[in-house]
Design a protein around this nucleic acid. Structure first.
Lengths: 115, 115
DNA sequence: CAGGATCCGGGTGGATACTG
DNA sequence: CAGTATCCACCCGGATCCTG
């Protein structure tokens, strides 16, 4: 499950659907809200979430076709625990970045750069 | 950050170190506690966690060498938000697996298996 | 409009051998 | 004991083209 959320797009898709948890979003709207995602990855990500029962897919056989996605109750139940964790990330992120820079710097010293 | 925790081993290493948050663990003990991990991946995972300031590494230049790892304060501060989320996973996991089987079954019907 | 099919490059992680 | 170095298979994800 953590692997799912840790993949490249899941969190972004869930975040989009969580913006207004009751209003379904069209495929194109999601794609528009996550500009860098490819159709393929959006499809695959939504399919995974649907498979886990976190997202519901509604197909309307009109012309042109319309497909809407929304969080299920189960999907919404995930938002709060997830927010608890992302809050920790936000609070800690600056420190983490600082640690990373420090680590990389001493690492570069220890090895001597390849120049 | 979620990508970090979503990778194959980070969560397991953190869990091991969280078992007794004050007692440092040796490299070998960690490897023993996570039987399927390779030396390489354990090293890389610990290095990443150290780089983020979540784990502290202590090297003792003895013979044979001894290296101990423990969670930092920052690492320990992550445990509670993380537990909040993993609790949700535990509570929901059965339902998710059920949804997956149902999804895969109807999918198999829709396509007809290749036999 | 939404998504299926196919091809392809790069990165992740495993196995193995070697070292201080 | 605790790594490092190297090679390699696999899969994820991007780009592109096609369809109901």
């Amino acid at each position: 499950m953590l692997t799912r959320l840790g993949d490249k797009w899941t969190i972004l898709v869930v975040s989009m659907l969580a913006l207004s948890p009751d209003v379904p979003m069209r495929f194109g709207a999601l794609k528009c809200g996550i500009p860098d995602i490819s159709q393929r990855m959006l499809t695959l990500t939504l399919r995974s979430l649907e498979r886990d029962g976190l997202v519901a897919r509604s197909y309307f056989p009109e012309v042109p076709p319309r497909v809407e996605y929304e969080l299920t109750d189960r999907g919404r139940s995930m938002l709060e625990p997830l927010a608890t964790f992302t809050a920790w990330i936000r609070d800690t992120w600056q420190d983490i970045e600082t640690s990373r820079r420090a680590f990389d710097d001493t690492e570069r010293d220890r090895l001597g750069d390849g120049r």
